[in-house]
Design a protein around this nucleic acid. Structure first.
Lengths: 157, 157
DNA sequence: GTGTCATCGTTCAAATTCGAACCACGTGTC
DNA sequence: GACACGTGGTTCGAATTTGAACGATGACAC
């Protein structure tokens, strides 16, 4: 292994800030959803993706990839949402192995009810704490990072 | 509740990017530490904080606050590290209830051994994916957010 | 068609996470 | 000192998370 390139002061500042903000934001968002709506953030994200997918629904693998979560965890959470009647699971037409998840009308209701409180919290702990230039800069920087991470999917290992 | 202020396109872009990057980065960092060093990121962070605290060590509560993690989880992880001989726990002098955690020489060794691989991964999935202006902008924006979150500790709820 | 290999989603066991309840102890008041 | 009240850490149980193993297909070559 080559000699370690340690983080300089600015890089360290970026990493630390990223770490701390992430912890704070997710803890806060998680708490809000749980207390007010009885949903975990993971479940909320699933509902959002399925809502965006509409009637067609989404294959489990596609959903897992787009949520950047292990498949086994997704199986668990979707099962949970299915029990609650917010989501359905049906065999895929084109591939017997495949399973398509769809949001139910009740799932849509729950999502619509949860959205305002969730958005408000996201504003409180992140969005509204920056001015517009900072917001744009953040979106730009993380957008770049995200794009490169997508390219090299798995290339990181 | 006032009418919901939904996120506009730019705000949404920032939030989505933040979400996705966070998931990818933490998953990758977690995997690297686990595979290469047998440590969770939580444990690594504890060792870093204790290492910075030196001989004096840190009180559990202080540590929990600085790691932005629930106390019960910290108790668990510190217990785990103590079993592995990387950390010690001793009663606090000034307060019998208090517990001071300290890193052991072996803990320092483990940390020093783990650091290069960890830093390399952090570079791969975040730091090195931005140019310098983006890095600075990220540090600025998240630094601002972090400062405001610290002020209003708990004020979010 | 038959064999081989990747893919799909689930299942499994083990580890971790969380908040709430809890006990022991400081802190301040009278 | 006795009291009420806040704090420090741990314990507890329930829910969740993870990668690895698994069974059942697809896909593709021969």
């Amino acid at each position: 292994m080559a000699k370690t390139r340690w983080l300089d002061e600015q890089e360290m500042a970026a990493w630390i800030a990223f770490l701390e903000v992430s912890h704070r934001v997710f803890r806060s968002v998680e708490a809000q959803l749980k207390e007010d709506e009885g949903l975990s953030h993971a479940q909320y994200e699933i509902l959002v993706k399925l809502s965006a997918a509409g009637e067609a629904g989404l294959r489990m693998t596609v959903l897992a990839d787009s949520l950047i979560t292990p498949k086994s965890g997704l199986t668990y959470q979707v099962g949970r949402l299915e029990q609650s009647g917010l989501v359905t699971r049906t065999a895929c037409d084109s591939d017997v192995r495949g399973v398509t998840a769809r949001i139910t009308p009740r799932g849509l209701d729950v999502l619509r009810a949860a959205a305002p409180g969730h958005v408000a919290r996201v504003r409180e702990v992140l969005i509204d704490l920056m001015d517009r230039p900072q917001l744009l800069a953040l979106a730009d920087a993380l957008g770049t990072v995200n794009g490169r991470l997508r390219e090299g999917t798995g290339g990181t290992a």
